[in-house]
């Protein structure tokens, strides 16, 4: 039935789309999956751009804060430098090696925080009704949620970590074979994905447990802190926990063993040191599952 009126409404390409269309396996399914992912990324980009423009309306304040964040971020690394004023090795690792761990962990955590860290305020978004507003827009709610209050100010952290990493790469005494060279960008990418998935996955707990916002700090910021130090420092059970439990070890510990040519304190097969992409894919899948389950519970779809 057509809408009457002065300006007749067309049936644009958008109005015919169905977001939850179930497509069978095969090429069509893959193509619709890719289209959905692209649309999610674009939605994120649109919202993040709006937030960036918002903060840019207070340009001076923004510039000051970005600079301050960048400088302040180095205080974090200063702790490690201060430790090394009193010792040459920590857990058998030297300062450039710790710099490698620090840089990779900090970069992955910082990038994940920049891109999707806002998801941690899910409980608040539910309480204030912001999530409802996102759910009535024809864009993926998770993408909007991750972009909510996006702030470029957070780029200070990954930039600082990248600087430490660059210094460490220059100072390291490593024979750069092709697999080592390749592992560095791969681990940065996969590490960001793993931290991102952890952020989303634990944020989803807030669908049921609205106040549990701080819990995920254990795994995100806590994980980031842990990964700055060599695995030899920690109890074996703890290291096992971050290999087979919450797979933080794949962010940098395991690939770093290969890059830096260090023995594995757990004696795991070498394959683990190359397995970051697999771990990242698993984490993302689990986080996606948690998000769907959480959203279903929130909207009250069966049980």
């Amino acid at each position: 039935m057509a809408d009457p009126g002065l300006v007749p409404a067309p049936s644009g390409p958008g109005s015919a789309r169905t977001g939850f269309a179930r497509t069978g396996p095969g090429w069509a399914g893959v193509r619709s999956g890719v289209a959905r992912a692209r649309w999610a990324a674009r939605s994120w980009w649109l919202c993040a751009a709006m937030w960036t423009r918002s903060t840019m309306s207070y340009r001076a304040s923004f510039a000051m804060m970005l600079a301050a964040n960048l400088v302040i971020a180095f205080l974090d690394f200063a702790v490690i430098i201060l430790m090394f004023r009193h010792t040459d090795t920590l857990g058998g690792w030297n300062l450039p090696e710790l710099g490698f761990l620090y840089g990779t962990s900090g970069f992955a955590l910082g990038m994940a925080n920049l891109l999707i860290g806002s998801v941690d305020a899910l409980g608040e978004r539910i309480r204030t009704g912001t999530l409802d507003v996102m759910l009535i827009r024809p864009a993926p709610a998770l993408a909007q949620l991750c972009a909510e209050r996006f702030s470029l100010r957070r780029i200070g952290r990954p930039v600082q970590a990248a600087a430490v990493l660059a210094w460490s790469l220059a100072a390291l005494d490593v024979r750069w074979t092709w697999d080592r060279v390749l592992l560095v960008p791969v681990l940065l990418l996969c590490g960001t994905a793993i931290f991102g998935a952890i952020w989303v996955g634990f944020a989803c707990l807030q669908f049921w447990w609205g106040e549990a916002e701080e819990l995920q700090n254990s795994f995100t910021y806590g994980g980031g802190l842990m990964l700055q130090y060599p695995p030899t420092v920690f109890a074996k059970d703890l290291v096992l926990g971050v290999v087979f439990g919450v797979p933080l070890a794949f962010v940098n510990w395991l690939p770093a063993l290969r890059v830096l040519g260090r023995p594995d304190p757990l004696g795991l097969p070498t394959a683990f040191q190359y397995a970051s992409p697999v771990a990242a894919a698993l984490c993302v899948a689990v986080a996606g599952f948690a998000w769907r389950a959480g959203l279903r519970a929130y909207r009250g779809t069966g049980s």
């Binding site: 430790m83 009193h86 010792t87 920590l90 857990g91 701080e214 819990l215 700090n217 254990s218 806590g222 802190l225 842990m226 130090y229 030899t232 420092v233 920690f234 109890a235 703890l238």
Partner: peptide, 18 residues
């Protein structure tokens, strides 16, 4: 509380090493 305990553990291990 869980978060504090986790942070405490991580820092304590690094102190033990130092």
């Amino acid at each position: 509380t869980v978060t504090n305990t986790v942070f405490g553990c991580i820092l304590a291990y690094t102190f033990v090493a130092l």
